[in-house]
Design a protein around this nucleic acid. Structure first.
Length: 754
RNA sequence: UGGGGUAUCGCCAAGCGGUAAGGCACUAGUUUUUGGUACUGGUAUUCGGGGGUUCGAAUCCCUCUACCCCAUCCA
C-alpha cells in the first residue's frame, strides 16, 4: 500500500476505526454476460485489494438476474481471470440466483408494508407516466391495489400464470422524485426464460436495484463498491435496505470512476461486436483489452495489477494513456525474461574471411539483471542480420553497419562491410563482409570502436519461426467502433529466424528479442514444427522516434496554443427587494459588493445578518463571517437547525474587533461552536485562546523556527519569497495558533531579512 | 432543461488554510557490447474562469463555464 490512500481506503479505514464494522467485506459482482476486460481488472484490484489490505475478505458473486443474456461460459471466464490475476474469493462462488427465494420473501415484506405494488400498465404507458427530467411522473391506477390483491397477483406472477410483461412489481416511492431512479422503480419482472443455473424454477426475476443491495446485505458486505454510473441508484439501494428495517450492520455503496484507456474500447457491447463481427479472432485475441486477450498476448498478471495500482482510484472520469500499461509490462519483464537473438527481416551476410564454425557461450541476461543462465549460439561464415541494421547511405546519427562503419555482432565479432550485392531492381540481396578475429566478445583486443551491437543468426542453424506483430487495435484515440480499427493491428511474419536454443532449450515462454521487444510463445498455436511468438510490447525506441521525427519534420509544427475562452454566463437578476437590500448593504453599511450580493440574494443569510446587527454594530466584520462561514452551514441546514445563534456570532466578532482573538482563532472558535454549541467567550476562556501580540514572546519562537529550518532560511534569502508563508505558518503553529498573524508576519519578515 | 457527479502538468493523480507529492509521457546528461535497463537533472509562480474572506487560499464563501451520469420490464 502506498502512503497516500485513495478515497475508498480512507472510508474503509474510518469505518473500521469508528467501529461501524469489525471486518471489511467487499465483493466483485460481475454479470456473467461477457468476458472481463481490464476495466474489470481495476474493479477486481480494488475490491480484492481492499479486502486484503484490511484483512477482510472479498466475495465473488455472479449477478445473474437476467436469464436472457447470461451464460455459464462467462462464469468460467470470470473465475479464470480472477485466479489468473492472483486473487482468491471467500468460499464458493456466489450467485444472486441462489438468493432468489430470500429476495422473493423481502419483496413480500415490502408489499405487506404497502411499500410495493403490482403494476399492470404496458411498457409504453409506463414510460409516459414516468414523466421527464423536468416534469414529475404520475402513478398508474394500479398503484391503489390492496395489499391482499398485490400479494395474490405477485404470487401468481411467480407461479407463471401471466405472460411476459403482463405485470411488474414496483416499489412505492415517489413518482415526482427529482432522481428519476426513485420514481417507483421496478423490482420484479416476468420472464418465462430458462436460467442457466436456476433452470425453470422461476417465472419472475428481480431487477438489479432490488437484488443487488439485498445480495450485499445477505452476504454481510460492508462496502459495496461500484462505478460512477450507479450514483443515482444509491438512493434505491438505501431505500430498500432502510425501509425493510434490516438488522444492522448494513452495507453502503461507494462509487469510483471506471477505467478508460485511449486507443481502446471498453464497453462489453462493443467488444462483443468485434468478436461477432470477426474483426478479432475471439475474446482472447491478443489485441483485445480483455483479461483473456492480455493473457494470450503475453502480459503478466503482475504487470496488470501494477498498472491498476499506478492509475489510482478517484471520481473524475479519465482516460489513461496506453503508454502507462506498456510501461508496466516492460518494467515487469525487464527483470524477468531471458534475452535472445531473433531476426525479423533477414538479409544475408557472407563473412568471406571466416572458415569453419564455432559455438559462442552467451548469457541469457544482461549485466544489470541478476539472473544466471546461458546458452550456446552457433557462428559461421553465413549469417543473417536485420535489414534495418544496414544502410548504404545512412543519415547522421546512424550507429549500425554501413560501408564505412563497422558493427559488433552481439556476443560475437566485429564485422566490416566490404561489398553490397544487389538484384536487378537495386535491392540489396547480400552483404559481403570481413570479421576481425581478435574482436571476439569478451576477449576483444582489436581496439576497434563500434557504435552498436546488432542481433544476428547463423544461416544454417537458425530456426524459422512465425512472429505475430501486434499493434493497437484502433487508430483513433477515442474509437467509436469498427470504422476506427487500425488496419495494421496485426502483421504476421512467416519466416523470421531465431537462434536455435530458443526452440530446443525452451528456457522460458517469454523472451526479449534483443533490441526489438518482448515476445510470448503463443499458448494455442505454438508447435515444435511451427513455433509462433506473439509480440507483447516493443522496447522503447529512441532511435526510431528520432529518425521518424526527421522524416516528418515540417508536419508537426508547434501548434498555436489556443487559449480557451471562458464565456461568462448570465447571472439571475435580483428581485426588487433583494436590490433594495443590496443598496442598503453597500451604501449604508459599507459592505463590498460581493458580500452584499451574497447576503442580499439569500433570505436566510440576510435574516441572520440582520439579527447579528441588532446585537453588535460591526457591519463589515459581521457580514464577512455570515457570508462566508455561516453560509456554509446554511447550505445544508435551516435557520432553526443551527447550533449557534446570531447573538453568539456577534459575541465572537466582538472579540475579533477587540483584538482579543485573531480571525484565525475566530475560525477555530466557530468550529467549536458548531460542534458543542457553546458560547464563544466560554470557549476562548476555557481554551486560553487569547491572542499573543507581544513581540517579546513571539521573537524567541521565530528564532527557534529559523534555527530548525536553516535550509529554508537560506532559500528565502536566496530569493524564494514564497517561504515567508511557510515561516509564518510554522511560528503560528508553535503558538498554538494564538500568535497575532499580522504581528508575526511583520516580525518574521524582519527577522528573515536581517 | 430537474437531479446527481467531476474539473490540479500532454495523460493519470496526491493535496483537506501555511514551500504545488508521485507515476507515465517528454527532455538533457552519465553508465552500457540491447539506440534497452539503471542513475542524475529539467519540466505547474499556479490548481476550469471571475470575484470575495484571510497576514496567507488549490483548499473556505459567492458566481459563472465545461464535461459525465439518470427518463431499459439491462446491469
Amino acid at each position: 500500500m502506498s502512503e497516500h490512500k485513495d478515497f475508498l481506503r480512507t472510508i474503509v479505514e474510518e469505518d473500521l476505526k469508528s467501529g461501524k464494522y469489525n471486518e471489511v467485506v467487499t465483493r466483485f459482482p460481475p454479470e456473467p454476460n461477457g468476458f472481463p476486460h481490464i476495466g474489470h481488472a481495476k474493479s477486481i484490484a480494488i475490491n480484492f485489494g481492499i479486502a486484503k489490505d484490511y484483512k477482510g475478505h472479498c466475495n465473488l458473486r455472479m449477478d445473474d438476474t437476467n436469464p436472457t443474456t447470461e451464460d455459464t461460459k462467462y462464469v468460467e471466464a470470470l473465475k479464470e481471470a480472477i485466479e489468473w490475476l492472483g486473487f482468491e474469493w471467500e468460499g464458493e462462488v456466489r450467485f444472486t440466483s441462489d438468493y432468489f427465494p430470500k429476495i422473493y420473501d423481502y419483496a413480500i415484506d415490502l408489499i405487506k408494508m404497502g411499500k410495493a405494488y403490482v403494476d399492470s400498465v404496458n411498457e409504453e404507458e409506463m414510460r409516459e407516466l414516468r414523466g421527464t427530467v423536468t416534469e414529475p411522473g404520475r402513478r398508474s391506477k394500479y398503484a391503489e391495489r390492496s395489499i391482499e390483491e398485490n400479494l395474490d397477483l405477485f404470487e401468481r406472477m411467480k407461479n407463471g400464470e401471466f405472460e411476459d410483461g403482463a405485470h411488474v412489481l414496483r416499489a412505492k416511492i415517489d413518482m415526482s422524485a427529482a432522481n428519476m431512479k426513485m420514481r417507483d422503480p421496478l423490482m420484479y419482472r416476468i420472464r418465462h426464460a430458462h436460467h442457466f443455473r436456476a433452470g425453470d424454477a422461476w417465472s419472475i426475476y428481480p431487477m438489479y436495484d432490488f437484488a443487488h443491495c439485498l445480495s450485499d446485505y445477505i452476504e454481510g458486505v460492508t462496502h459495496s463498491i461500484c462505478t460512477l454510473e450507479f450514483e443515482n441508484n444509491r438512493d434505491i439501494y438505501d431505500w430498500v435496505l432502510d425501509t425493510l428495517g434490516l438488522e444492522p450492520p448494513r452495507p453502503y455503496q461507494h462509487e469510483f470512476a471506471r477505467l478508460g484507456i485511449n486507443y481502446t474500447v471498453m464497453s462489453k457491447r462493443k467488444l462483443l461486436e468485434l468478436v461477432e463481427g470477426g474483426q478479432v479472432s475471439g475474446w482472447d485475441d491478443p489485441r483485445m483489452p480483455t483479461i483473456a486477450g492480455y493473457k494470450r498476448r503475453g502480459y503478466t498478471p503482475e504487470s496488470i495489477i501494477n498498472f491498476c495500482d499506478q492509475i489510482g482510484i478517484a471520481k473524475a472520469n479519465s482516460m489513461v494513456d496506453v503508454a502507462q500499461l506498456e510501461f508496466c509490462i516492460r518494467d515487469d519483464l525487464n527483470t524477468k525474461v531471458p534475452r535472445v537473438l531473433c531476426v525479423l527481416d533477414p538479409i544475408k551476410v557472407n563473412i568471406e574471411n571466416y572458415e569453419g564454425s564455432e559455438e559462442i557461450e552467451a548469457p541469457y541476461y544482461p549485466h544489470d539483471v541478476p539472473k544466471e543462465g546461458s546458452r550456446k549460439i552457433p557462428f559461421s561464415k553465413e549469417i543473417y542480420i536485420e535489414r534495418d541494421d544496414f544502410m548504404e547511405n545512412p543519415p547522421k546519427g546512424y550507429f549500425r553497419l554501413t560501408p564505412e562503419q563497422s558493427v559488433r555482432l552481439r556476443h560475437a565479432y566485429i564485422i566490416t562491410c566490404k561489398e553490397v550485392i544487389k538484384d536487378d531492381q537495386g535491392n540489396i540481396v547480400e552483404i559481403i563482409a570481413t570479421y576481425h578475429p581478435d574482436s571476439k566478445s569478451g576477449e576483444d583486443s582489436s581496439g576497434i570502436k563500434v557504435k552498436s551491437a546488432i542481433q544476428w543468426v547463423s544461416a544454417s542453424e537458425a530456426k524459422k519461426v512465425e512472429i505475430r506483430l501486434y499493434d493497437r487495435l484502433f487508430k483513433e484515440e477515442a474509437p467509436e467502433g469498427v470504422e476506427d480499427i487500425n488496419p495494421d493491428s496485426l502483421k504476421i511474419i512467416q519466416n523470421a529466424l531465431i537462434e536455435p536454443a530458443v526452440i530446443t532449450e525452451k528456457c522460458d515462454e517469454r523472451y526479449q528479442f534483443e533490441r526489438q521487444g518482448y515476445f510470448y510463445a503463443d499458448p494455442v498455436d505454438y508447435t515444435d514444427e511451427r513455433p509462433v511468438f506473439n509480440k507483447i510490447v516493443g522496447l522503447k525506441d529512441s532511435w526510431g522516434k528520432k529518425s521518424k521525427e526527421k522524416k516528418t519534420t515540417g508536419k508537426t509544427e508547434a501548434k498555436p496554443q489556443e487559449k480557451k475562452v471562458q464565456i461568462d454566463g448570465e447571472v439571475v437578476p435580483m428581485t426588487e427587494a433583494q436590490e433594495k437590500l443590496f443598496t442598503k448593504y453597500t451604501d449604508d453599511l459599507g459592505l463590498n459588493s460581493e458580500v452584499a450580493n451574497t447576503l442580499a440574494r439569500d433570505d436566510k443569510l440576510s435574516y441572520f445578518y440582520a439579527e447579528t446587527l441588532d446585537v453588535l454594530h460591526s457591519p463589515v466584520a459581521l457580514a464577512n463571517i455570515v457570508a462566508n462561514d455561516v453560509a456554509r452551514e446554511l447550505k445544508t441546514k435551516q435557520l432553526d437547525e443551527l447550533s449557534f445563534t446570531p447573538t453568539q456570532i456577534a459575541a465572537l466578532i466582538k472579540m475579533v474587533d477587540d483584538e482579543t482573538i485573531s480571525s484565525k482563532i475566530a475560525k477555530q472558535v466557530f468550529e467549536e461552536m458548531l460542534k458543542t454549541g457553546e458560547n464563544p467567550t466560554d470557549i476562548v476562556e476555557s481554551k486560553g485562546l487569547i491572542q499573543i501580540s507581544d513581540p517579546a514572546v513571539i521573537l524567541p519562537i521565530i528564532e527557534e523556527v529559523m534555527e530548525k529550518n536553516p535550509d529554508n532560511v537560506e532559500k528565502f534569502r536566496a530569493g524564494n519569497t514564497k517561504l515567508l508563508g511557510f515561516f509564518v505558518g510554522q511560528v503560528l503553529k508553535a503558538t498554538g495558533g494564538k500568535g497575532n498573524p499580522s504581528v508575526v508576519n511583520k516580525l518574521v519578515a524582519q527577522k528573515l531579512r536581517s
